[in-house]
């Protein structure tokens, strides 16, 4: 497993395209530390002015939901249609609602 240790760790990269927008996941890069990860992300993912801000995070530090839990996690929201404005019927003549 000495081969394993020789790799530069993987970082996930998030870019804010411009002020007012959220950071969006764009891919990953390899780097030995956070400073270098930002530089590598800049060199790879912003060659055409794609961003004004970069986040990097060690891939191994990301906690993700299990796709196997997707039904339990997300389907219960499916029938709560009363959370959406279209659920309510209001006469057309009533304005500003």
């Amino acid at each position: 497993m000495s081969e394993q240790r020789k790799q530069w760790p993987l970082y996930e990269v998030f870019i804010r395209a411009r002020s007012g927008l959220e950071h969006k996941h764009v891919g990953s890069i390899h780097a030995v530390d956070a400073r270098q990860a930002v530089e590598h992300a800049r060199d790879l993912y912003t060659r055409r002015q794609e961003g004004v801000s970069i986040w990097v995070v060690r891939s191994s530090d990301i906690v993700a939901s299990d796709p196997g839990d997707a039904e339990a996690l997300f389907e219960p929201a499916k029938d709560k249609i009363y959370r959406h404005p279209t659920f309510y019927s209001i006469p057309d003549e009533v304005k500003n609602l």
Binding site: W8, A31, H40, R47
Partner: peptide, 11 residues
């Protein structure tokens, strides 16, 4: 030495 450095040197 690494792809990342190819990009950096080119920049």
């Amino acid at each position: 030495p690494a792809l990342e450095e190819d990009l950096a040197l080119a920049n």
